[in-house]
């Protein structure tokens, strides 16, 4: 991971709110992060923690209403994606930032051939003619490891298996050589042996193409295997952020610590009883005025209920939003 390089994507103070019948849901609360060139940034959190909504907000992929982006900046290639014209945003999607969705079954159009769907962004963003686009589409299918690519271009999505469909999705996202690839739970719907194939493919593609990747998942094992840096999200906020080695070796936030022990290990020592995080994830009905995790936190003290902790650095590149200090086992002096 190159240090000190200009980030390719810089997100500052993003806030996204959903208007629902039962009031507002504050799905993303003051989220800031950046992405360095060539870096793989893992984003972990449970469902409802705001990880997908954050990424979809960046590219204006959320329908409005109900979604309402209340504030923040998303700097990409010299412009703020939240304020730019719809045409420009359209050009960025696909060509500048590629997106892979969770479910390969529903994100491909069943009535068009796979070839057509890969050629679509090439013709639209790259100005290729049909023959060029077909040639490139075939190269892309070969790149993502689909055998007999020329023939497979004429097949429809239902003729592909789940893992193969996800490869097609990756091919589409890579079509226009994006600088940034955002992958939203790309392996969650897949079986574990197929997931291993896709992870291997991504490791390989990173070496070949060198784009920056944001990888959203709830599986800490996947993050440990491929990410350089990790963001942990809870209640629409980033509660911990740092290099993957540091976060797994020395987790600071009680939520991160709990997440790491609540999943049983597949190898090594076997735990007799699983650690449990009691309670439920919160539904953010207002801008958080206190720590979102305090009700489930075993370390919580009075300050956690009065004030929402801000992110503070604990070591270079590693920060946490928490008043509790695992080193002293007491309050952090901030």
């Amino acid at each position: 991971m190159p240090d000190g390089a200009e980030p390719v994507l810089d997100v500052k103070g993003l806030r996204t709110v959903f208007q629902t019948r039962s009031g507002e849901i504050h799905a993303v609360n003051d989220v800031s992060f950046d992405l360095k060139p060539g870096e793989l940034l893992g984003v972990v959190g449970e469902s409802g923690s705001g990880k997908s909504v954050t990424m979809m907000s960046l590219l204006g992929l959320l329908p409005s209403p109900p979604a309402d982006i209340r504030g923040g900046e998303v700097l990409f290639a010299g412009s703020d994606l939240l304020k730019c014209a719809p045409d420009h945003l359209q050009a960025v999607r696909g060509a500048g930032i590629g997106f892979i969705f969770q479910d390969p079954m529903t994100s491909l159009n069943p009535v068009f051939t796979v070839g057509y769907q890969i050629m679509e962004p090439l013709r639209r963003h790259m100005g290729m003619d049909k023959a060029q686009a077909r040639q490139r589409a075939q190269e892309l299918l070969e790149l993502v490891g689909i055998p007999d690519a020329a023939r497979r271009l004429k097949d429809f999505p239902h003729q592909f298996s789940g893992g193969m469909r996800q490869r097609v999705m990756i091919a589409i996202a890579l079509a226009c050589d994006p600088k940034v690839l955002i992958a939203d739970e790309p392996t969650t719907a897949l079986d574990v042996t197929i997931q291993a194939q896709i992870l291997e493919l991504v490791r390989d593609l990173r070496q070949k193409l060198g784009m920056a990747i944001v990888w959203i998942t709830h599986d800490l094992g996947v993050i440990a295997g491929i990410a350089d840096r990790v963001l942990v999200m809870y209640g629409g906020q980033i509660v911990e952020q740092g290099p993957v080695g540091a976060v797994f070796r020395d987790p600071q936030h009680p939520y991160t610590r709990a997440l790491l022990t609540t999943v049983p290990a597949i190898r090594g020592e076997r735990t007799a009883k699983l650690n449990v995080i009691e309670g439920q994830p919160p539904i953010m009905k207002a801008v958080p005025a206190a720590c979102a995790f305090r009700d489930r936190c075993t370390m919580a003290f009075d300050r956690c209920g009065r004030e929402n902790p801000r992110r503070i650095a604990v070591s270079p590149g590693h920060d946490v939003a928490c008043f509790w200090d695992p080193k002293t086992g007491g309050a952090r002096h901030v």
Partner: peptide, 27 residues
Amino acid sequence: EALLSAVPEADPETEANRQRIILKGDV
């Protein structure tokens, strides 16, 4: 053997050095 090898582990160090068996193809 392949199935167990495909399960990722929540530990970056072992993940970096682990030999994986990647099965080819689909069921």
